[in-house]
Computed example of a mutant assay.
Amino acid sequence: MLSKENTGLIITDIQGKLAGLVHDSEAVVSNCEKLIKGAEVLGLPIIWLEQNPDKLGSTVDELSILLADQSPISKFTFDACEEPQFMEAVRKANVDTWLICGIEAHICVYQTALHLQQLGFKVQLVCDSVSSRTFANKNLAITKLVNRGIDVSGVEMCLYELVKDCRAVEFKKILTLIK
């Protein structure tokens, strides 16, 4: 079970034109908005990534506005774990479990999730908050990650798992996000 005391969120490369080209892009961005807002309500550490922003563009406005109090970590490797600044942020977060969302599911999300797992972290792929340019590649990523022991969740499922109790202070805010 997820616990807000030891869980963080990684937002992977939801940038520029590519964000609009992925399968079901509007739903993915909307779900990532809910996930970010929920993580903030629950006090989770958030790490925000951008792949080669000079070429791919910056994070979409809907998300960058929510993340305005921090800066993205730029990377050029598909696997964010190869970026020292990312690994420093992961260590500073002091959690052992990471929710991961973003694009593209079969490239950057996939490689980062696997590497985090190899480093001993628990990883949950938030499947309604990831995508690729094709639905087939999204499904391929989910299948391969599941086969390698990565857990799969959804926005609503993980947020309710983190809040745990309808009497919790955060519950009403989470409920409002989900509705």
Rank of each mutant, 00 (worst) to 15 (best):
Q111Y: 10
I100G: 05
Y160E: 00
L140P: 00
I142V: 14
E50I: 04
E33K: 08
Q118E: 14
A113E: 01
K92I: 11
G120E: 09
Q111H: 13
K172M: 09
L116V: 11
L56Q: 13
A19I: 03
V95G: 05
Q124S: 09
L67Y: 02
I174N: 12
S129P: 00
K34H: 05
R91S: 14
V126W: 04
I46D: 04
E156P: 01
V163P: 11
V146F: 10
S153G: 14
L116W: 14
E156V: 05
D151K: 11
M157D: 05
C158W: 10
G38P: 06
L44I: 03
A136W: 11
L2W: 10
L56H: 11
L44Y: 08
Q118K: 15
K172L: 08
N139G: 01
V28K: 13
C166T: 09
S25V: 03
A141D: 02
K172C: 03
E33Y: 00
K34E: 00
L177R: 00
I107P: 02
E33C: 12
S74E: 15
E161A: 15
E50H: 13
T97Q: 15
E26G: 01
L63P: 06
S74H: 12
C108G: 02
I65M: 05
L2H: 08
T143D: 15
Q70H: 08
I103T: 12
Q51W: 02
G57Q: 04
F78M: 13
C127Y: 00
D13M: 04
D96I: 04
T59V: 02
F86W: 13
L125P: 11
D69H: 15
T77D: 12
A19K: 05
G102M: 03
D61K: 14
A105K: 03
N147C: 07
L99N: 06
V109E: 05
P84Y: 03
L66E: 03
R133Q: 07
D61T: 13
C127D: 03
E104S: 09
I100D: 05
E170D: 08
I46G: 10
V130Y: 01
A113C: 04
I65W: 00
K172D: 12
D13A: 05
V22H: 09
R167C: 10
N6D: 15
A168P: 08
V169Y: 04
D96R: 07
N52R: 09
C32D: 08
E26H: 10
I100L: 10
Q117Y: 13
I11S: 06
K138W: 09
V90F: 07
L116E: 13
N52L: 05
S74Q: 15
A89M: 12
E40I: 10
E83T: 14
K17A: 11
